[in-house]
Simulated scan of single mutants.
Amino acid sequence: MAALKMTISCFVFLQVLSCLLSSFALSKALGLKVGFYDMSCPKAELIVKKSVFEAMKKDLTLGAPLLRMFFHDCFVRGCEGSVLLDLKNKKDEKNAIPNLFLRGFEIIDDAKAALEKECPGIVSCSDVLALVARDAMVVLNGPSWEVETGRRDGLVSNISEALSNLPSPFNNISSLITQFHSKGLNKKDLVVLSGGHTIGNGHCPQITNRLYNFTGKGDSDPNLDTGYATSLRKICKPTDTTTALEMDPGSFKTFDESYFKLVSKRRGLFQSDAALLDNQETKSYLLNQMKSDRSTFFKDFGVSMVKMGRIGVLTGKAGQIRKNCRMVNK
C-alpha cells in the first residue's frame, strides 16, 4: 500500500511538473516579457505614458476608443498592430464597420515618433498600442497592470477579417463564448473584458433593433428594462445613425465596476451585454463582480488584458518593427 501511494504521489508530482514546464515553454515561445525594452530602450514606457497623459488631459473620452483599439487589434490576426495600418484602397481594418468609431490613432503616432527619436527601430507599434491601452485606463482612475512587451508588427490589414472576427454588439451568448474561446479566452475573460463597457459611448444604430423591431414585429427586446428602453427611445429615433449614448450613464469617463450593476438590472446597452445573463457561468461571474469590491474587478481585468495581449503575437524574427505605424516598412 505504501509503495502504491508513493507511486501515485510521484505520478501526480510529474504531472504537475510537466504542466509547469509546459507553461514555461509557452511563455518563452511567446517571446513576451515585462520589461522587454529595459536594456534596448529604457525610457520606452515613460515616453508612451507621456503621450497618453498629455492627450487625455485635453479629452478624457479618448480612453474608451484606445482600449477598444487594442481589443479590436488582438481579435483580428492577433496583437500585431494591423488595426493601425492605412491602405490606399481603404480596404484596411480601420474602415470596417466595427472600427469606424475608433479614435486616438494620432496618440499612437505621437508616441511612436517620440520613440523613433529616442531609440530608432526598437519599439513595435503593437507594443505601443498595448501600453497605450493600459495607460489610458490609469488616467480614468482604472486598473493598472504590468504589460508584457516584445511583440513585432504584422504586414497585412484586411477589412473582411475585421468584419468576421470582431464580436458584435448584436451577438448572443453562444456566439460570444465561441469567439472568445477561439482566441484562448474563457467565460470569465468574456465577462471581465465586457466590463470595459463601463467607459465610452455606443451609438444609436447599435441599439435601434432592440428598441423598435427586435423580432421583426415592431417590438422591443423583452430583456431590456422597460424604463431604460423608454429613455433610450427619447434619444434614438428609428432613423438616427449618428447620436452617441453613454455606455455607463453618469460615469462613462470613469473606469469602475458599475457596468455589472447595470447589466444585472437589465440596463446593459447592447444585446451582447444582456447576453451575459443567458449563461449560468457568465451570469455567476457577472454577479460576483458586482458584489466584489473594485480591487477585485481591477485585478481580474488586468489578468484578462494580459491574456488577451498574447493572442497571435509575432515575436523573434517574424513581422517587422514598423517605423511608421500607418504603413509597413519599404
Rank of each mutant, 00 (worst) to 15 (best):
residue 2 A to M: 03
residue 4 L to N: 04
residue 20 L to F: 14
residue 24 F to D: 10
residue 24 F to K: 07
residue 29 A to M: 09
residue 33 K to S: 14
residue 33 K to D: 15
residue 34 V to P: 02
residue 34 V to G: 01
residue 36 F to S: 12
residue 36 F to T: 02
residue 40 S to M: 04
residue 42 P to G: 14
residue 45 E to Q: 11
residue 46 L to R: 11
residue 52 V to E: 13
residue 53 F to Y: 12
residue 53 F to H: 14
residue 55 A to C: 04
residue 55 A to Y: 12
residue 67 L to A: 13
residue 69 M to W: 05
residue 79 C to K: 03
residue 80 E to C: 02
residue 84 L to H: 06
residue 85 L to Q: 02
residue 102 L to H: 12
residue 107 I to D: 01
residue 107 I to S: 03
residue 109 D to W: 00
residue 110 D to M: 01
residue 112 K to P: 04
residue 115 L to W: 08
residue 119 C to W: 11
residue 122 I to G: 05
residue 125 C to F: 03
residue 128 V to W: 00
residue 135 D to W: 03
residue 137 M to H: 07
residue 137 M to C: 10
residue 141 N to P: 02
residue 146 E to K: 12
residue 150 G to C: 03
residue 156 V to K: 13
residue 160 S to L: 10
residue 164 S to A: 11
residue 165 N to T: 08
residue 165 N to C: 12
residue 166 L to R: 07
residue 173 I to T: 06
residue 175 S to N: 09
residue 175 S to K: 07
residue 180 F to K: 04
residue 188 K to M: 08
residue 188 K to D: 13
residue 189 D to M: 01
residue 192 V to F: 09
residue 195 G to H: 08
residue 198 T to G: 15
residue 202 G to K: 01
residue 204 C to T: 04
residue 210 R to S: 15
residue 211 L to Q: 05
residue 214 F to W: 15
residue 218 G to E: 06
residue 221 D to H: 00
residue 222 P to W: 15
residue 224 L to I: 01
residue 227 G to W: 05
residue 228 Y to K: 01
residue 232 L to C: 04
residue 234 K to W: 03
residue 237 K to C: 05
residue 237 K to N: 01
residue 239 T to H: 11
residue 243 T to E: 12
residue 251 S to F: 02
residue 252 F to N: 13
residue 255 F to N: 00
residue 257 E to H: 12
residue 259 Y to F: 13
residue 263 V to R: 01
residue 265 K to D: 15
residue 266 R to D: 06
residue 270 F to L: 06
residue 275 A to K: 09
residue 277 L to M: 13
residue 277 L to W: 13
residue 279 N to P: 05
residue 280 Q to K: 14
residue 284 S to Q: 15
residue 285 Y to R: 04
residue 286 L to K: 11
residue 287 L to K: 13
residue 288 N to G: 10
residue 290 M to Q: 15
residue 293 D to S: 07
residue 296 T to A: 15
residue 299 K to L: 04
residue 303 V to S: 14
residue 305 M to A: 12
residue 307 K to S: 10
residue 309 G to I: 10
residue 310 R to G: 05
residue 311 I to S: 10
residue 311 I to Q: 04
residue 318 A to P: 03
residue 323 K to G: 14
residue 323 K to A: 05
residue 330 K to R: 14
